[in-house]
Design a protein around this nucleic acid. Structure first.
Lengths: 131, 131
DNA sequence: GTAATGGTTCCAGTTGCTGGAAGCTCAAGA
DNA sequence: TCTTGAGCTTCCAGCAACTGGAACCATTAC
């Protein structure tokens, strides 16, 4: 398979696939013409990567997960730990965003949003205690 | 004021302040020795920036907000629009993270996480439909 | 033969800083 | 007065995870 077909089937842009090879996540063979010659295994790895990335795992997490996937002697605890840590980070991110959202929503609500210049949003932003 | 004091008072690292000058968010004067000589106005702008960044506004949004802040003839509607768009983006981000969190939480729960190799998390990641 | 499509590499840019090196300035102590 | 240390300067490189574009080669269809 050439990169175009693999990209289509794995749901990843060719650029991303080349990048994943660059950083050593996959190692596709080469045809005589220099084209990458993807095997089924490469395709599955790419799909795996796409899925893991969609769940927000970092590239380094993906590298580890892929290695565990390839390793028949893995312990599921290793996988679970990575996933739990990631889950925790997601929770933190959500909490942070909710806090932003909360503040911002109040400010937006307080701003009449018309042609006049006075604006509670700008007032809030400029009201830092700086002394 | 030198950069150290301003950094302290605005709650931003000196590196960040230099960076903000680099990209034209502030334009502090210079002393004869070449040191940046910050005025009160600079300090207020930096605090404004710190606050806006903490609410997740992009640097470009910050640039616009700062310009509106400086512009007595602004209309609050302009500010409100930026804030509303940002709020909307935050909402989208939260929704996306919640969806990830949801999937991931189910997987983590399903994984017994012991010394055995079988793992629902890896199974899910590798179960992409690729044909 | 030629044109379109799809490969290849390499370099640069994105966002918002952050770290580090090399060197200058200033204030305080021996 | 000399020195030491802190604090300032600039500049370059790197982070994450791609993405865009240029320049060029290969394949395929007409």
């Amino acid at each position: 398979m050439n990169i175009g077909e693999v990209a289509e089937r794995a749901g990843l842009p060719p650029k991303t696939i080349r990048y994943y090879e660059d950083i050593g996540l996959i190692r596709p063979l080469r045809s005589d013409n220099g084209y990458r010659a993807f095997q089924k295994n490469d395709l599955h790895k790419l799909a795996f990567l796409g899925r893991a990335r969609a769940l927000g795992f970092s590239i380094e997490d993906c590298r580890t997960l892929l290695a565990l996937y390839d390793d028949g002697t893995r312990e599921s605890a290793q996988v679970k730990q990575i996933a739990e840590e990631h889950l925790h980070q997601i929770d933190e991110k959500i909490a942070q965003l909710k806090s932003m959202r909360n503040t911002l929503a109040h400010l937006v609500e307080a701003c009449h949003g018309d042609h006049r210049p006075d604006c509670p949003i700008l007032e809030d932003l400029s009201n830092a205690n700086v002394d």
